[in-house]
Design a protein around this nucleic acid. Structure first.
Length: 876
DNA sequence: TACGTCACG
DNA sequence: ACGTACGTGACGTAA
């Protein structure tokens, strides 16, 4: 067996050292990271160099120690720990835990004593000991078996104190370090020592007499001097100081050396903490990803053909795709498992296998899988209609842990404690290096995924039931996945010619505007570069700087709007920006997404992404097609029905979020306003401006009230409202105060939401969707405030999302039940877009509002408005 | 790949 | 005093 080596770290001292050695770094979420970063680099270095078999980080516990009993002023007059450092300690503990290093603190004792005690114990057993600290006091522990590392200047630069080194440096033994400190004192610990005795004098005295005790024994023989006087006068202090400086090597520890075994970090957790802290360089440098984790052996068969006898009533199935673009990419293969037998077959053996196809299409054959929507869409392209989805790991994970990012089976599985599946990146590589490995590797990888799904199904369903979220998962998200899959596969037709024509017109306009802008600027530059634009506007033309970004001048629209009167160029730039956006994103970008075969775009609705429960839409994003400005709105003319004599039919909830708020907070005035069908912004204006008559509400008042209502939904702050209305913070504050006084139920809701989040750690929506808010108790103002606003907003936005999802399921059933040809194509958060034959308009006008308004019963009515026309533009 | 910007609800 | 509205995705630039 190799020799054991124990590393003992002084947590507090090293954290302080790191904090003061590095500039005050901040990560994206506003947490300071200089101490955590320094601590980490120090750990990385020392572990790498020393390769310890045992490790421990000791911390000081509490404020008082046994040392205070003998000397009340011990460590008195010390500056309070800076809050920028205090906030980093929880993360340092997290880091240590992720490294799988034992940490320890003991009531009444300091880290020094813990280290001293363990060092002595270990040395007694012949273990090599290394002590690491930023505090030179620890050098007293040095022996032949114990080396003390003290950080110098930075945190990774280290001075190694052996007895020989101490002899060389001071001419003293390690034990004499205590005497030295007894004589000279220690300012940082408020140990007095003997006044007037510094390092030099102390060393001289000790070289002569050995110890403080012997020094005083010999005092009579010393010739009279100022020094002697001081020594005599302060004899008691000298002895006390020595006592205080002595590290105890017999602290009553509740741990033993056996508890300190170190065998390397938990790479997953460590990466997570690094991610959280934003240590990108460390993540990149780490070779964790490449480390082949030991995985249990898997028995599977790579078969030419999946035979009928392999197809059971309930199985996990995994269809492996090349990438996430399942409307256009290839499938690689398919694995099935029933927990006993696992089979894989390449994709070429799937399509023509009638038994397999029938089994997939058989609703009574229950399938467990991950991402049923992607699977359904890909199989649909292969001419197979997936039925009987019983479990979807992606959706179950999303309900249980909405914060998990990514849809890799390995990531999901690990979150729930299952390790025996590799990440896609490990198998295929990523980016330009992506490559399909040999068939056997793919077969095993895909088989492992199927097995992972099989194993995780009972675990996740059980947890969902315990959380009372099973219904949300099984009755809402799972059936919704099927509907979204159909919507995506159906796609929406885009008239490319319309887009091209608009693009041509835009191109001409943009060229003219470009020329005008260059002229006004007096030179050519890249208008699309905020950096170059900033130079022109603020340096060359000398416009006043209203706002800055972290990289330079802000040239955002709200800033430019305020500068319009300063220079003609500004309005041209604003106009240019608007058109350039249309051109690049909505003309060129959209054209790229149109499928040649059917002239349609097939977006992907991300169903397991947002933290509120909303959907998102990608490739292309059809949830942000312009509407507010007429120029942009025209883009919608390119979205048309897929058949002649069909129309697009759009239905949207009116004020759904405020209605949800009214329902949840039960505020009498708000509920009444909706029950009476009042214009809610006008009603709000009456309350905020203390008016009796709706006719007294001016359009400015209504606009203001509308902004206040938005603010309420977002988790109000006076600053936010002042920005959106361009008024002072104080004025905004008065509006908010008036509002909350008029609607006390809302105020109560806001307070209760935050309280609940603090108590339970999460907030919930109407259908029991959760959002966890760990930052709600953070000592960091920014993080905490953000969590508080989220606590107010998420139940509102999330419940609205629940409602429309339920409406989609009901609507799908109703269309089926009525035997209609109408198809649901898009969802845009509070609206549904259908395409329908003209003959069905009349019935849609009746059933769409009915179904949507009754999706979930609230204490206030839901209101749906609709319209239709030959293009999306006309459905207004 | 990060940032600023801007489109939507 | 702190620095912000909530939730998204796509683009071009610049590193």
């Amino acid at each position: 067996m190799t020799k054991q080596k124990l590393l003992l770290l002084d947590g507090n001292s090293l954290a302080y050292r790191a904090f003061f050695a590095l500039p005050l770094l901040t990560n994206d979420s506003g947490i300071h990271t200089n101490a955590t970063y320094g601590f980490t680099t120090m750990l990385q270095k020392i572990i790498g160099e020393e390769n310890p078999t045992q490790m421990l980080v000791a911390f000081d516990a509490g404020k008082t120690t046994f040392r205070h009993e003998s000397f009340g002023e011990y460590k008195g007059g010390r500056q309070k720990t800076p809050p920028e450092l205090s906030e980093q300690f929880p993360y340092i503990r997290k880091l240590i835990d992720a490294y799988n290093i034992k940490r320890y603190e003991l009531e009444m004792y300091e880290a020094d004593d813990i280290i001293g005690t363990l060092a002595k114990q270990a040395a007694g057993q012949g273990i090599e000991v290394i002590v690491v600290s930023g505090d030179k006091d620890l050098t007293q522990l040095a022996t032949e078996d114990v080396t003390v590392y003290i950080t110098r200047k930075g945190i990774t630069d280290i001075e190694k104190y052996t007895p020989a080194h101490i002899q060389e440096k001071y001419g003293l033994t390690p034990e004499q370090i205590i005497d030295m400190k007894g004589l000279m004192g220690d300012q940082s610990d408020n140990i007095p020592g003997v006044p007037g005795v510094g390092e030099k004098t102390a060393i001289k005295l000790l070289k002569e007499h050995g110890t403080i005790e012997k020094l005083y024994e010999a005092m009579d023989s010393l010739k009279a001097s100022k020094m002697k006087e001081k020594l005599v006068d302060n004899e008691e202090m000298a002895h006390l100081s020595k006592k205080l400086a002595t590290i105890h090597t017999d602290a009553p520890l509740t741990i033993s050396l056996d508890d300190l075994a170190y065998s390397g970090p938990d790479e997953e957790s460590l990466l997570n903490v690094w991610q959280e802290l934003g240590f990108k360089s460390l993540i990149e440098k780490s070779d964790f990803e490449a480390v082949e984790t030991e995985q249990a052996e898997l028995v599977f068969e790579n078969v030419q053909s999946i035979k009928a006898d392999m197809l059971k009533d309930t199985m996990a199935i995994h269809l492996e795709l090349e990438n996430e673009h399942y409307h256009s990419c290839n499938a690689l293969g398919l694995a099935l498992t029933d927990g006993e037998r696992t089979v894989y077959t390449a994709i070429d053996n799937v399509v023509d296998n009638a038994d397999l196809k029938a089994w997939i299409q058989d609703e009574t054959k229950k399938k467990y899988m991950v991402d049923s929507k992607a699977t359904q869409a890909m199989l649909h392209r292969l001419g197979i209609e997936l039925k009987g989805v019983e479990f979807d790991l992606l959706l179950a994970s999303y309900i249980l842990k909405p914060s998990i990012s990514g849809d890799d089976v390995a990531t999901l599985a690990k979150e729930f404690g299952y390790q025996d599946v590799q990440s896609n990146e490990a198998i295929y590589g990523k980016g330009a290096k992506w490559i399909v490995p040999g068939a056997d590797h793919v077969a095993e990888h895909v088989s492992r995924k199927a097995v992972a799904v099989w194993k995780l199904q009972p675990v996740l369903e059980q947890t969902l039931k315990e959380n009372e979220q099973f219904e949300l998962y099984k009755e809402l998200e799972l059936p919704l996945a099927h509907i979204l899959g159909k919507m995506e596969s159906e796609g929406i037709t885009v008239n490319i010619d319309t887009l091209r024509q608009m693009g041509d017109e835009l191109k001409t306009k943009l060229e003219v505007m470009e020329a005008t802008i260059y002229e006004l600027a007096g030179e050519k530059f890249n208008i699309n570069s905020p950096k170059q634009l900033g130079v022109i506007l603020f340096d060359k033309l000398g416009l006043p700087v209203i706002k800055k970004t972290k990289t330079g001048y802000s040239t955002a629209a709200d800033v430019l709007e305020k500068l319009q009167s300063e220079h003609d160029i500004v309005k041209h730039i604003l106009e240019y920006r608007t058109l350039a956006k249309l051109q690049s994103t909505y003309i060129e970008g959209l054209i790229k997404e149109v499928h040649k075969e059917d002239s349609k775009v097939h977006t992907r609705f991300q169903q397991a992404l947002t933290s509120t429960g909303r959907l998102s839409s990608t490739n292309p994003n059809l949830q942000n097609i312009p509407i507010r400005l007429e120029e942009g709105r025209k883009i919608r003319k390119a979205f048309v029905p897929s058949k002649k004599d069909w129309i697009l039919f759009a239905a949207d909830y009116s004020q759904i979020e405020l209605r949800v708020l009214a329902h949840m907070c039960g505020d009498d005035a708000l509920v009444e306003a909706f029950q009476q069908g009042m214009d809610i912004h006008t009603r709000t204006a009456m309350d905020v401006f203390n008016l009796e008559n709706p006719d007294d509400v001016t359009s400015l008042m209504r606009r203001t009230a509308k902004a206040v209502n938005f603010g309420i939904v977002y988790g109000i702050s006076d600053y936010g409202l002042s920005q959106s209305l361009d008024i002072t913070r104080k004025e905004a504050g008065i509006f908010i105060e008036n509002y909350l006084q008029s609607f006390p139920g809302v105020k109560n809701y806001m307070d209760t939401s935050i309280e609940e989040a603090k108590k339970a750690g999460f907030v919930t929506t109407i259908l029991n969707r959760r959002r966890y808010l760990p930052d709600i108790t953070s000592s960091n103002f920014n993080l905490r405030s953000f969590a508080e606003r989220t606590a107010m907003n998420t139940p509102i936005q999330g419940s609205a999302a629940d409602i429309i999802k339920k409406a989609m399921i009901d609507m799908d059933a109703r269309l089926e039940q009525e035997g209609l040809q109408t198809k649901l194509l898009l969802q845009v958060h509070d609206e549904l877009i259908f395409e329908a034959p003209k003959e069905e308009i009349e019935i849609l006008e009746r059933i769409v509002p009915e179904v949507m308004e009754n999706a979930i019963k609230l204490s206030v009515p839901l209101k749906v408005e609709f319209s239709y026309g030959p293009t999306w533009y006309d459905a207004k």
